[in-house]
């Protein structure tokens, strides 16, 4: 900065570089250098030629800052601050009071809410991503492994080997084996993906969220397991209702629809509806871990949701087994769900 006289120099020297706020790009604090010039025209020349960013001319009461085009605002602000403080002090003294008395009670204390909530919950984008992740994992596993169960059932039915199998072991055992095997695979794959995601998270700034996350994941696992088993039996029944691979499309359609709707609902429901939905089996797998993550559930809520999904699981096992047992040896054409229920053993 260029100055014209000791008063101006004294003002510039009292500029606090830290008060200028912004750091320069290389991370160093800005510094202010003063260069006294002879007069106003020398100061103008210095600014126009780029030797100085700004020039402070004049004296107390009539300060003037010279700039060339775009003045650096932080420096300008800092200089103005010093001038203002000086003027304030002088005026206060003239009025028989002090700056401290004049400015008493003018300060506003800032409380940053964003920083306070960080200890209790997750940043919003993390919960959204996780919610999407949880929902998507379950949706994918349910569709992929579900389809696999259904097509392995129809493969056995279509190739007619099912009668040999049914004669050798009870059909119920055949179904249980299928469900157990695929559940294990789905669960294993999901666990692998979640573990990878968690390990990946430790390399980012979001690793502060890990402890809260671990709890949500801990709840997600049993919900996933029960939700998957509940669906698996129904998938097997869907496979048994078909008689050829080509029929699978139509017999699995109701299931796929339910899953798509649940997936979309889980991502879009808000408020009370969301809370209610987090107790509905299948939806609870998608929503309850998320609500736990957000930290607004009492201890009994996930427990109740888990009990409900377990009950639902029992029902689908019974219905699925019944359909599977009856439709499995029905090889002439595909059946509707309604017809399947009416078949005799």
């Amino acid at each position: 900065m260029a100055t014209t006289g000791p008063d101006a120099t004294s003002v510039v020297e009292r500029v606090d570089p830290a008060a200028m706020g912004a750091l320069s790009f290389d991370g160093e604090e800005p510094t202010v250098t003063v260069e006294e010039v002879a007069d106003r025209s020398a100061a103008e020349e210095s600014v126009l030629e780029g030797d100085a960013d700004l020039a402070l001319v004049g004296g107390p009461g009539e300060w003037e800052v010279l700039a060339d085009g775009s003045p650096p605002t932080t420096l300008l602000g800092a200089v103005s601050d010093v001038v203002r403080t000086d003027a304030l002090a002088a005026n206060a003294e003239a009025a028989g009071t002090s700056v401290t008395e004049l400015t008493a009670g003018t300060e506003v204390r800032l409380t940053d809410l964003a920083e306070v909530t960080e200890d209790e919950g997750m940043p919003e984008q993390v919960t959204f991503l996780l919610g999407f992740g949880f929902a998507f994992l379950f949706y994918m596993a349910a569709i992929m492994f579900g389809m696999q169960i259904a097509s392995s059932v129809v493969e056995e039915k279509q190739s007619r080997i099912v009668e040999i199998l049914a004669a050798a072991i009870p059909v119920r055992q055949l179904l249980m084996g299928k469900v157990a095997g695929n559940t294990l695979l789905a669960f294993g794959q999901m666990a692998l993906l979640v573990a990878t995601a968690l390990v990946g998270l430790t390399f980012t700034d979001l690793d502060v969220a890990l402890p809260g996350l671990a709890e949500a994941v801990g709840w997600y696992l049993p919900f996933f397991l029960l939700g998957f088993v509940a669906l698996a039996c129904i998938w097997a029944a869907a496979g048994a209702l078909a008689s050829r691979t080509e029929d699978l499309q139509s017999t699995t359609m109701p299931l796929t629809m339910v899953l798509v709707v649940a997936f979309i609902a889980a991502l879009n429901l808000q408020g009370v509806w969301r809370e209610v939905a987090s107790f509905v089996p299948l939806l609870s797998t998608l929503l309850m871990p998320l609500r736990i993550l957000e930290g607004d559930v009492s201890w009994w809520e996930p427990v109740l949701a888990l009990v409900l999904v377990a009950l639902f699981c029992l029902v689908t096992i019974l219905v699925g087994t019944r359909l599977y047992q009856r439709a499995l040896l029905h090889t002439s054409g595909s059946l509707s769900w309604r017809k399947g229920m009416r078949l005799s053993e």
Partner: peptide, 19 residues
Amino acid sequence: TAGDRARFGYMPEERGLYP
């Protein structure tokens, strides 16, 4: 019983193995 049947050999009318 189911245990007896597990020892029976059976060839169904509709043939099939895993192709």
